[in-house]
């Protein structure tokens, strides 16, 4: 009985070690991948542009540029080096860095431009107001995957969802995934991503929230809180996605458990040694 227990503990410990190493690898990858990005070209900054990429060797005209199009000094745009992007699907978009190969799919937020991935905080909205935010989701994958998006309106905030509209656009292709009421948004907005040469794909979401001018007094002083979720669904099994924060929280919980576990294992070992001596 005791031997079986011991074997089980050993097996579980090995599995846990493997799992922890994998998790730490993913976290390290996510941490260092953006810095690798900054040392290479950052082409195709597409904020506010909903057209197909500019032809090779040309640059966007000033009329096409918006505030978000500006690229920090010292970084060059190589529009012509972009892979082809097709309607409804995209390829590995922008990095030329040969990032560490991750065997499964990894999904994470990437701060491509200042202000990316910042939650909406729109106060004092009035009819006719329009607010836009940008979210950059990177996908490390080796197979074609479907990236899904959903805005989940929290319970108790449904009234404003009756009139608050949103438009979800993939700036890579200009495809509008959804334009309508928050409350009527489908369970998921899908976008197919094709891999290219082991580099990460990048999806740039433009999310615009707006109120029609016809919105009436019933919706004055109303509040809506929504959580935006992205996840991957593809042929790979299992999908290996992760929120940047979630593993850290889990690691903290694990650290606490290990603090309890280690003394127990030491005690158990000492008792075993005592038995052997006797």
């Amino acid at each position: 009985m005791s031997k079986k227990l011991k074997t089980l503990i050993v097996v579980l410990s090995v599995m846990l070690a493997v799992s922890v190493i994998a998790l730490v690898s993913v976290l390290l990858y996510r941490h260092f991948a953006p810095s690798m990005q900054t040392t290479t070209t950052v082409p195709n900054n597409l904020i506010g542009v909903v057209t197909t990429p500019t032809p090779e060797g040309t640059t966007a005209s000033p009329e096409e540029e918006t505030e978000g199009d500006k690229i920090p000094d010292g970084e060059e745009t190589e529009v012509g080096s972009l892979p082809d992007i097709h309607e409804g699907e995209t390829t590995a978009a922008d990095t030329t860095a040969q990032a560490t190969q991750i065997p499964a799919v990894s999904l994470y937020l990437h701060n491509r431009n200042e202000g990316d991935n910042v939650p909406f905080e729109v106060m004092n909205m009035f009819p006719g107001d329009v607010e836009t935010k940008y979210f950059c989701v990177r996908v490390a994958h080796s197979e074609t995957v479907t990236v899904k998006y959903r805005a989940e309106v929290r319970k108790g905030y449904e009234i404003l969802a009756e009139v608050l509209k949103c438009r979800i656009t993939i700036l890579n292709t200009g495809e509008v995934l959804y334009d309508g009421l928050m409350k009527s948004m489908p369970e998921s907005l899908d976008f197919t991503v094709i891999p290219q040469d082991g580099v990460d794909s990048e999806l740039y979401y433009e999310i615009t929230a707006y109120l029609e001018t016809s919105v009436g007094n019933r919706h004055q002083n109303r509040r809506l809180i929504a959580d935006f979720h992205w996840w991957v669904e593809g042929e790979l099994d299992p999908p290996n996605t992760g929120d940047a924060m979630q593993p850290i929280v889990i690691i903290c919980v694990m650290a606490v458990i290990l603090l309890i576990l280690v003394p127990l294992l030491i005690k158990r070992r000492r008792e075993g040694e005592d038995d052997e001596q006797q």
């Binding site: 937020l109 991935n117 910042v118 939650p119 909406f120 905080e121 729109v122 106060m123 004092n124 909205m125 009035f126 607010e131 979210f135 805005a151 404003l160 608050l164 929230a209 109120l211 919105v215 919706h219 004055q220 002083n221 109303r222 509040r223 809506l224 809180i225 929504a226 959580d227 935006f228």
Partner: peptide
């Protein structure tokens, strides 16, 4: 990306 807040005036 959680806690996206919208509030009307």
């Amino acid at each position: 990306v959680e806690n996206n807040l919208f509030q009307t005036g």
